[in-house]
Every structure is written in C-alpha cells, then in structure tokens.
C-alpha cells in the first residue's frame, strides 16, 4: 500500500467499530446455517462447514411462521399507509393554508418528539383496554397512526416546492385535493417513499408495545415470536432462533437497500432547509 500509514491508522478504530457492529450479524447469519453439533463446537467458527438448511426447514414446517409473518405485515403495512396519509395531509395544511394558531399547533406538534415512549405506555394501554382492543392488531395499530416526525419531514419537503406551481394549478380551478394529488404528490414522491420505508421498518421491528397488547400466540408479530424461540420453547435451539431472526430482518433490510437513495435525500433536505 502506498497511502500514508499514519492516515491508515485512523481507520483502525473505525474498522474496530465496524467489527463490533457486525459481529452479532455475522454470528446470526452463520449460526442459522449450522446444525447443533457445529453450534456447540468449542471454536468460534464463523463459517458453517458444511452449511445446512435444516433450521430453516424446521422453522417453516413446525412453526406457524407464515401466521406471524402475516400478522406483522398487516400491522406494519396498515400503520405505514395511514401514517403516510396523515403526515402528508397535515404537512399540506401547515404549508399551504393560513389559519389561526398555525405556529402554535405546529410547535406543539414538534414538542411531541420529546415525550418518551414510556410515558405514553400507561395512558395508551388504558385507552386500548377501555376500547376493548387489547389482544387485537388494532390495539397495536391505533396509537401509531400519526407521527410528528413524518409531518415535520413532509412539511420540509413541501416547502421546497415553488408556490407559483400551486397558484398555477389553483388558477386552473383545481380543488385543494387535486392540487395535492396532481402537483404536490408527484413532486414529493422520493421523500414520501423514504419516510414510508422508515415507518415500515419501525412498525416491523416494534417489540415492546405489541408485547403489551398481544397475548394470544396466534396474534404475535415476528419480533415477539422471535423472543418465544429464545426463551420458552427450547432455550438451546439457537440455530432455529437465528433462522427466525434472519427471516425477520430480511424484509426491512431488502427494503432499505432498494431505497437507500431516497432516504439519504430526504434527510439532506430537512437538514439544509430546516
């Protein structure tokens, strides 16, 4: 290597950090392809030799994996879609309408960023319980349909659209919804896609709230099911647990890689114009 050695030295802590970050992932991937004997070998072998699919077969054949998958998909997609709709509509109002107390409302909405989730657990739980929605997907979904961050990000993006475009549409007698649908949405599509992915990954990975609301195993989402494998139903089935973990994190991972471009753009925009 011809690059100065001193410079490369700075890469050392970075590489170390990457290693620390990646080690559990590598361990998860390799373990999921190992059989029992390989897992309990004394050496930390990162490469399963020979790799086996037996864990995946067990998961798919003996556990209601697809029920969990369906539950998770339903909840995650429902939350994502509605959150996107509410974010876009609220941002639209904040950007293009003048109404009384607009700034106050917007600022108090920003304040919700600072309320820790733990504070909301009790009131939300009681509310869901009174509504009779405990142990249903709706109990998981309902408290999450609006998101301050989503509104904030959508507002930042919409502020970048020249006002003349909206006025041109208004002069053509376009209704507010037509303006939103025909002019604004096509222009904010990259950002909207990006935050949808965030919403989706968040909802997909959520563990604590579903744990409180869902009791029936048939209702479980994948993160809950994952925990089930690790503790109750066989504490030593590491191969199977890792296979489930793999299957759980695969969809958001794929989604992220496909849409990385949009995500970076959105955050850059909010940073520059914020």
């Amino acid at each position: 290597m011809k690059i100065s050695k001193l410079k490369n030295l700075w890469h050392l802590p970075l590489l170390l950090a990457i290693l620390v970050q990646f080690w559990p992932l590598v361990f998860m991937i390799s373990t999921s392809f190992k059989d029992m004997n390989q897992i309990f070998q004394a050496s930390l072998n990162p490469l399963p030799l020979p790799p086996t699919l037996v864990n995946y077969e067990t998961v798919l054949n003996n556990f209601p994996f697809f029920t969990f998958l369906n539950n998770t998909l339903f909840i995650a997609i429902f939350i994502t879609v509605i959150k996107l709709v509410t974010s876009v509509l609220a941002a639209f109002a904040f950007v293009y309408y003048d109404f009384k107390y607009k700034e106050v409302i917007f600022n108090s909405m920003l304040l919700t960023f600072f309320i820790p989730f733990t504070v909301l657990i009790m009131p939300n739980y009681l509310l869901m319980s009174k509504l009779g929605l405990l142990n249903t997907p709706w109990g998981v979904i309902l408290p999450q349909l609006v998101d301050g961050m989503g509104i904030f990000l959508m507002r930042q993006t919409m502020r970048g659209i020249p006002k003349a475009l909206l006025e041109a549409a208004v002069l053509e007698n376009a209704s507010p919804l037509q303006v939103l649908y025909k002019v604004i949405l096509p222009l904010i599509r990259p950002s909207a896609t990006a935050i949808s992915i965030f919403f989706f990954i968040d909802a997909w990975n959520e563990y604590f709230w579903p744990l409180l609301v869902l009791q029936d195993k048939g209702m479980y989402t994948l993160p809950l099911a994952l925990q089930m494998f690790i503790s109750a139903e066989g504490g030593s089935e590491w191969g199977i647990a890792m296979a489930v973990a793999m299957l759980t994190c695969l969809p958001p991972l794929i989604l992220y890689f496909v849409s990385q471009r949009f995500i970076l753009n959105t955050f850059m925009q909010s940073g520059v114009k914020g």
């Binding site: 020249p162 475009l165 006025e167 002069l171 053509e172």
Partner: peptide, 19 residues
C-alpha cells in the same frame, strides 16, 4: 375564488409542472 374567475395567467417563473 381564483379558479372561478376564468383568467389565464403567465407567471414570471413560468410555473411549469416539472413532473
């Protein structure tokens, strides 16, 4: 309201829809 005035307008920035 502006939409009902049946007025055609050309903006300084042209305001063409980029998409």
């Amino acid at each position: 309201p502006p939409g009902e005035r049946n007025i055609a307008m050309v903006f300084q920035s042209y305001a063409l829809f980029p998409h």
